[in-house]
């Protein structure tokens, strides 16, 4: 049995394939302007027996094919749990939304919260700020906060925050300091969301931004708790969907 999960995010489409219960392959592609074509390509390439879709674009597949869908909340809960069986809290910072999900002992979703409608505190926010500061997204998260000043970005709104960043640049603030401040502002938003939902341990960081080590260390410092990151954190949603596909 080949069960596939496909997670259609705002930036990337992620796919995971389970063959007889074992993770056999993963794929990642740009969402692009024609996500449906991308998905069809992936579906053809992988040729699974059963597929479940999740992510922001999941309904695209539901409408155009007969593929079953689940929300990314459910998919992440399942996938993160498979990657880290002891986890009780999931932090997911995605391209356009940020979520904190709280799980009970057996891994069912107890409570969750996600940002609504605005990009503050999301991957998009980081992307825009990286651009304003002239960083490539890949290098942006690997700056060290060691010895950096306590510079603050005060605005929650992406547009205002961007002008704040620009005014800091023109005032001669160091680029690295500003970058750390930008990350701190995202971290603080996530922490306050977690305070409302759950900080039960183990805490895991999933989704694309989980590879951002600066963000992880700032969240850990702010929470005073350790966060575990699995090997392929970006695949959690697709894996969760694949696990549901496998069950039929």
């Amino acid at each position: 049995m080949r069960a596939m999960g496909i997670d259609i995010g705002s930036r990337f489409i992620k796919a995971a394939l389970l063959e007889n219960g074992e993770l056999a392959a993963t794929r990642m592609a740009d969402t692009s302007f024609d996500p449906l074509e991308r998905c069809k390509g992936l579906l053809e390439e992988v040729a699974a027996d059963k597929v479940v879709a999740t992510g922001y674009g999941r309904h695209l597949l539901e409408i155009h094919t007969s593929i079953q869908t689940i929300t990314e909340i459910k998919a992440f809960a399942r996938g993160a749990r498979a990657l880290l069986p002891s986890c009780r809290t999931i932090i997911d910072i995605g391209g356009q939304d940020t979520k904190v999900i709280s799980l009970n002992e057996v891994g069912s979703v107890k409570k969750f919260e996600m940002n609504d409608r605005c990009a503050a505190g999301t991957g998009k926010f980081l992307e825009i700020m990286a651009r304003a500061l002239g960083y490539a997204l890949e290098e942006f998260g690997f700056i060290s906060s060691e010895g950096r000043s306590e510079l603050q970005i005060n605005s929650m709104c992406t547009v205002f925050a961007e002008s704040e960043v620009i005014s800091l640049i023109t005032k001669g603030a160091k680029r690295e300091d500003i970058a750390v401040a930008v990350h701190r502002s995202v971290a603080n938003r996530v922490i306050s969301m977690a305070r409302r939902v759950s900080m039960d341990e183990d805490i895991t960081f999933a989704g694309g931004c989980a590879k951002n080590s600066l963000l992880k260390s700032l969240i850990e410092a702010g929470m005073g708790k350790r966060i575990m990151v699995a090997e392929k954190p970006e695949i959690a949603g697709a894996l969760g969907a694949a696990l549901y596909a496998q069950e039929g």
């Binding site: 689940i70 459910k74 609504d116």
Partner: peptide
């Protein structure tokens, strides 16, 4: 929320996830 459709996607995800629970 309000009457606009701009938050439709996010609302749908939140509500679907709530229903899944």
């Amino acid at each position: 929320t309000d009457y606009s459709m701009e938050d439709f996607g996010q609302l749908k995800t939140r509500i679907e996830a709530f229903i899944e629970i």
